[in-house]
Design a protein around this nucleic acid. Structure first.
Length: 403
RNA sequence: GCGCAGGUGACAGAGUGGUCAAUUGUACCUGACUGUAAAUCAGGCGCCCUAGCGGCUACGUAGGUUCAAAUCCUACCCUGCGCACCA
């Protein structure tokens, strides 16, 4: 039986949700009806990386799962094999089967930190869309396309913009909404949850559900993490910091600390389990002049705890205090094995810590490389390794070189 | 198919024979200041080395002209706009 606690439902429908289509009331009514709904979240399998922006959707999914609804997580392996919808990519990379498999594995591992997956009381099911798309033939595709008009497609903001700018729009880009929409039909879902940048695609699924099954599909568009100052998306490759769900715990903690202050509250809401009441308290504290750093420390700890457990959360916090407040050396840093008398530049290049020897050279000349223990700077770009050494590169990179 | 415009570094966008490894902005990196935040200031931002007014590779692709090409010529590929085609 599903839980129809009105208060609980109201909270779920408020937190991190921007819009619900056709309407929040209609969806709430559906949830209150006691009917067990089938709900899904999809994500492309392009890389194995999921970040805390994705987590928002999975958190909502999990809340609904806990109410007793049927929950599906869609692994977009087929969509990934075709390429990126923004069309800009020149070499569309086709993933091999092996890559897809390994992506799925890490992906599953990350998602399971948030959503209970598996064959026990109401665990989430994982599906992949290659299982139906790879079987479709061209006639099927044309049939699917016949449900939409050019005008509907072109209405989309992103296309409008490109039309205005006279930038190319490739035909295949119209297939992404179609494919995503078709996922909904195959899975016969009642609800889809996704970031608000996915609204158009999710609505395509709503349209198709109506046509194919004469059935309503609710679209839940969640808020994206944005930097209120620049208006740009956080967790965006061009904006810098991406906090991956499988980031190493110290790294994760550090990345959260490096988030802009203005985003603290929204990250609390969208990426943690801290109650809204408590977040409100934090917000008020910040307003009345509390040091944002402390709020961010709390935030970082909460987030690390979700993905690495409480113990690591504590540890990351301590490490952070040791390293950055007191200027010490963090625990659990990357270790690189090296031969005696080997130039440091080669060692670091081999470990992909620097991009090139020139890069290393620049860093040395900028005074960015030092012995983390003694604090002594390395000033010779041709420095050869002769003993175990712990290096600090810039402010945040630490490496231990072991002979 | 024809005509016109265009293809430049992560992105945007200058440059139209030498002084261009390429103006500028954003992003990014480093230093100072800090709270591994922001703002600000300073520097950097293709690769290699024996580090120099050094070498190599790069302005869609392939050739060519020239002492010298991102810049000129030819062919090809790709994009936009317009015209034609409209089965």
């Amino acid at each position: 039986m599903v839980n129809t606690d009105s208060e609980k439902i109201e909270e779920i429908l408020t937190r991190s949700i921007q819009t619900i289509l056709p309407s929040k009331d209609a969806f709430k009514k559906e949830l209150l009806s006691g009917k067990r709904l089938r709900i899904y979240v999809g994500a492309d399998a392009t890389g194995s990386k999921l970040h805390i922006g994705h987590a928002t959707n999975f958190m909502i999914l999990e809340r609904l799962r806990q109410l007793g609804h049927e929950v599906i997580i869609l692994f977009g392996d087929f969509t990934a094999m075709i390429g990126d919808p923004t069309g800009k990519d020149k070499e569309r990379r086709t993933l091999t089967k092996k890559e897809v498999e390994s992506n799925l594995k890490t992906w599953k591992n990350q998602v399971s930190k948030i959503v209970k997956i598996g064959n026990f009381n109401n665990g989430a099911k994982i599906v992949r869309n290659s299982s139906w798309f790879s079987k479709m033939n061209f006639a099927d595709v044309v049939g699917l396309a016949s449900h939409f008009t050019l005008q509907q497609m072109v209405e989309r903001d992103m296309f409008q913009k490109r039309l205005e700018e006279k930038k190319p729009i490739f035909l295949h880009e119209f297939f992404y909404p179609l494919m995503q929409g078709y996922d909904s039909v195959v899975l016969d879902v009642d609800v889809e949850i996704g970031g608000n940048d996915q609204t158009f695609n999710m609505l395509a699924g709503r349209t198709l559900q109506k046509i194919k099954r004469n059935k309503e599909k609710f679209v839940v568009a969640t808020t994206l993490l944005i930097n209120p100052k620049t208006g740009k998306k956080l967790m965006n490759k061009s904006e810098g910091i991406i906090i991956g769900l499988d980031d190493e715990y110290n790294d994760m903690f550090g990345k959260v600390m490096a988030l802009p202050d203005e985003t603290i509250i929204s990250v609390f809401i969208d990426c943690t389990y801290v109650s809204l009441n408590e977040i409100e308290k934090i917000r008020k504290a910040l307003e009345s002049g509390a040091n944002p750093r402390d709020a961010k420390m709390r935030l970082a700890k909460e987030i690390v705890t979700i993905y690495h457990g409480e113990e690591k959360g504590e540890k990351a916090e301590q490490n952070f205090i040791e390293t950055f407040k007191k200027g010490g050396v963090p625990e659990g840093m990357q270790e690189v094995k090296a031969e005696n008398e080997k130039p440091l530049s080669e060692i670091l290049l081999g470990a992909k810590i620097v991009e090139s020897k020139s890069d290393f050279r620049r860093l040395v000349l900028e005074g960015a490389v030092s012995d983390a223990v003694s604090g002594e700077k390395i000033t010779d770009p041709n420095y050869k390794i002769s003993k175990n050494i712990t290096l600090k590169i810039g402010k945040k990179r630490f490496v231990k070189i072991v002979l």
